[in-house]
Amino acid sequence: MNNLEGLIQQHQLKRHPEGGWYRELHRSTALVQRPDAAKRPGLTAILFLLPKDEISCWHRVVGADEAWIHIDGADLNLFQCKPDGSGLQETSLNRNNPLHVVPGGCWQAARCDGSYALVSCCVGPGFDFADFEMLRQQLESKRPVLPHPELI
Rank of each mutant, 00 (worst) to 15 (best):
L88V: 10
P125Y: 00
Q12Y: 04
G114H: 11
F129Y: 14
V61Q: 11
P35W: 04
C57D: 13
Y22A: 02
F127D: 01
K142N: 15
D65R: 07
I69K: 06
P51W: 08
E5L: 13
G105I: 05
L118T: 06
N97W: 08
P149V: 06
G124F: 01
L49E: 02
Q80Y: 11
A130V: 08
W58V: 03
Q12H: 15
G20A: 06
H59L: 10
A74C: 02
K39N: 10
W107K: 09
D65S: 11
D65E: 05
L76G: 04
E140V: 15
P125Q: 03
V145A: 08
A110L: 06
G126K: 03
W21C: 01
Q138D: 07
L25A: 12
C57I: 05
L50Q: 09
F127Q: 07
L93N: 07
F79T: 01
L93P: 06
R95G: 03
C121Y: 00
P103L: 12
L76T: 04
F48A: 01
S56Q: 10
D128M: 01
I69M: 13
E140G: 02
T44Y: 11
V61A: 08
R136K: 15
P83M: 11
E24R: 14
E133G: 04
V123Y: 04
N97T: 12
F48W: 03
K52E: 15
D72C: 03
L151F: 13
I46S: 06
T91W: 10
L139D: 15
D75T: 15
W107C: 08
L4M: 04
V145M: 11
N77P: 00
A38H: 13
N3F: 09
E90P: 00
W107Q: 06
L4G: 04
L49Y: 05
F129C: 00
N77W: 11
Q89L: 15
W68R: 00
R143M: 10
L93M: 05
L93Y: 08
R27M: 02
L50C: 06
H148T: 00
V123F: 03
W107R: 09
L49W: 04
L25H: 13
L99G: 00
L4N: 01
C121L: 07
I46H: 07
G104P: 00
A30H: 14
E140Q: 12
E24F: 02
L78Q: 08
D65N: 14
P149E: 10
R95Y: 13
F48I: 05
D84W: 07
G114D: 12
L49C: 02
F48Q: 00
R95P: 14
N3H: 15
